[in-house]
């Protein structure tokens, strides 16, 4: 299938046009933007940078960012082709963000909520210490202020450069979600292209309602790893949101243009939102 892994949309001279990595069509950038980064030709839902995702989701001007003081660090002094610390610097320069997660509070159709959004453009949205901490604090903030939680994922999984510290973020985020659930919380996980590895295998899969975007790659192992292991071609549409829905692994698939409305509709069933409306 042509929906390969996220080849970057190739910028054309002047930056006016992009090539859709799913269908190969040249798309006018303004049109793509107006269409919420969904290809007007093939409807592929392209990955959305975190800040843009928040703009698309939150009521205008309602987002208040939290936990901005958290800075990633190179605890292991990890060096592969280059030092991890250098890689972090470059990712920060490229994205203008300190880490691969933006978190805070906002309203959505007037409903207050806490949200954390992973940013795939920052080291593939990978989860290290800071991303885990931000997700955990978002959930704790929601618990404290009796808010519902929305977690939006776009991630290759746990970040290798922080070794077992990254792995432990899976436990940390699940620990806070467990406490939140016990306290009567309500959480929605929105899985977008791609959501894999340690992110899928932790907070993204244990929210109360799991929503996928159309065509999003969602899985534990990446398709190439699986192919190398089993040495067979993978079935058509394998690990796409539609496949997961059919296998009973997610609750719903929601198109981006209907997302706000649909999230609001779900959120209005949440206990704390009902209480707010009854008041």
């Amino acid at each position: 299938m042509a929906w390969g892994r996220l080849r970057k949309k190739k910028e054309m001279p002047g930056g006016l046009w992009s090539k859709c990595s799913a269908c190969g069509t040249m798309v006018y950038n303004k049109e793509l933007e107006a269409n919420l980064l969904v290809c007007p030709e093939c409807s592929f839902h392209h990955t959305v940078p975190a800040r843009r995702r928040i703009e698309m989701t939150a009521d205008p001007g309602s987002f208040v960012e939290h936990f901005t003081d958290l800075q990633p660090r190179d605890r292991l002094h990890f060096v592969d082709q280059e030092p991890y610390s250098e890689k972090l610097k470059r990712a920060q320069q490229k994205t203008g963000n300190t880490e691969a997660c933006l978190a805070g509070t906002c309203t959505l159709e007037g409903i207050p909520l806490a949200l954390a959004v992973l940013d795939f453009s920052f080291m593939g949205g990978s989860m290290g210490e800071v991303v885990g901490e931000k997700v955990a604090r978002t959930v704790e903030l929601a618990l404290e202020e009796n808010l519902p939680v929305l977690l939006v994922s776009a991630s290759g999984g746990a970040r290798m450069h922080e070794g077992a510290i990254s792995l432990m973020q899976m436990a940390k985020t699940c620990a806070t979600l467990h406490a939140y659930r016990e306290a009567g919380g309500f959480s929605i996980s929105l899985m977008t292209n791609p959501t894999t590895g340690g992110v899928t295998a932790s907070f993204a899969s244990v929210c109360d309602i799991l929503v996928g975007e159309p065509g999003a790659l969602i899985g534990f192992a990446g398709p190439r790893v699986i192919q190398n292991t089993i040495r067979q071609d993978l079935p058509e549409g394998f690990q796409r949101a539609e496949f997961l829905l059919e296998k009973g692994q997610i609750d719903r698939i929601v198109e981006r243009k209907a997302l706000r409305e649909e999230l609001a509709r779900i959120l209005r069933y949440a206990p704390m939102v009902r209480a707010l409306q009854d008041a």
Partner: peptide, 26 residues
């Protein structure tokens, strides 16, 4: 590591692991 295969993904490998981690806190 957990098995990376077609059946494993179909039956929710990531979700099974995530649920274990979460449930073990209770």
């Amino acid at each position: 590591g957990a098995y990376p295969g077609v059946g494993a993904e179909e039956r929710g490998q990531a979700r099974a692991i995530a649920e274990n981690i979460l449930e073990m806190f209770g």
